[in-house]
């Protein structure tokens, strides 16, 4: 079953499963995808969960219930237009209160992934440290970006090998990760730098950081978009293993299978 192009989240109440995969052993895992006004990659994140074998549930920013989902993805976009500061208004959404509470309980807490704008929301919500400022060349950048998995022990990276490289699309305007040196040292020291840019830092991020986690490893944020490297034919032109296939790269899929397999245990 797939969602139709016109699927939009409903108002309140129990949410129908947006997509599942009947044949998948992982389809019992429900992953919620939050839609804020201005979210753009929400349907793409839903597709990625389905392609990884899980079931996706649309979550509406104004709701007060997490619908018993097992994990949450805060997708990319420009929530509330990002006119104030990326993610600054979204953190006050009723659903974010639920997410913040559920994600803060230590190792058994709710796994949360923030992609791009979602990462920005997570820093604004103080689930992750640091902040994002405008790219150092001041332009929006869309490109296929090479990353290295620096920590394969999180909920969202366990399917990768430590040090594995990935090619994943990057597209953002405010993607420069900044934090004070103390925080950066702490992130490095605790192995909480999850992804690092390789072959060139696209936006001036401190220490080439592309993604980080919280101390418990259940909350991960990254700027590049793994949900756009999950389906052959619609991804980047290459994978990190060097194959060149027209839009054939699927290096991002492991992020979604990681959380599904972890949760199935």
């Amino acid at each position: 079953m797939t969602i139709s192009n016109n699927e939009t989240p409903l108002i309140g109440g129990p949410q129908p499963v947006a997509s599942n995969n009947e044949d998948s052993p992982l389809n019992g895992v429900k992953v919620g995808v939050v839609t804020f006004p201005g979210s753009l990659d929400d349907r793409d994140a839903v597709r990625a969960v389905r392609l990884a074998g899980g079931s996706a549930v649309h979550l509406w920013h104004g709701d007060h219930s997490l619908q018993d989902v097992d994990a949450v993805i805060i997708p990319g976009g420009f929530s509330y237009g990002d006119y104030l500061r990326a993610g600054a208004i979204s953190r006050f959404a009723p659903l974010m209160e639920q997410i913040t509470a559920a994600a803060s309980g230590g190792a058994d807490a709710l796994p949360v992934l923030g992609i791009c704008n979602g990462f920005q929301v997570l820093t604004e919500a103080h689930l992750l440290p640091g902040s994002m400022i405008k790219n150092n060349d001041l332009h929006f950048i869309c490109r296929d970006q090479r990353l290295r998995v620096e920590n394969a022990d999180t909920f969202w990276t366990s399917e990768y090998a430590q040090g594995e490289e990935l090619v994943i699309p990057l597209k953002n305007q405010d993607g420069q990760f900044v934090a004070d040196n103390y925080t950066l040292d702490e992130l490095e020291g605790e192995g909480r730098v999850v992804f690092r840019y390789v072959d060139g830092n696209p936006n001036g991020s401190r220490r080439d950081i592309a993604g980080i986690s919280n101390a418990a490893g259940n909350v991960v944020g990254l700027m590049p978009h793994p949900e756009h490297a999950v389906e052959a034919g619609f991804g980047p032109d290459s994978s990190a293993r060097g194959e060149v296939e027209v839009r054939g790269g699927t290096d991002g899929l492991g992020i979604f299978t990681s959380v599904l397999k972890k949760l199935v245990g």
Binding site: D41, R43, D44, C142, K171, H228, F234, R247
Partner: peptide
């Protein structure tokens, strides 16, 4: 020019 435009969003871009 084109690297300043998002060509991925919606996940349906084949070329």
């Amino acid at each position: 020019v084109t690297d300043q435009y998002d060509r991925y969003v919606q996940g349906n871009t084949a070329l």
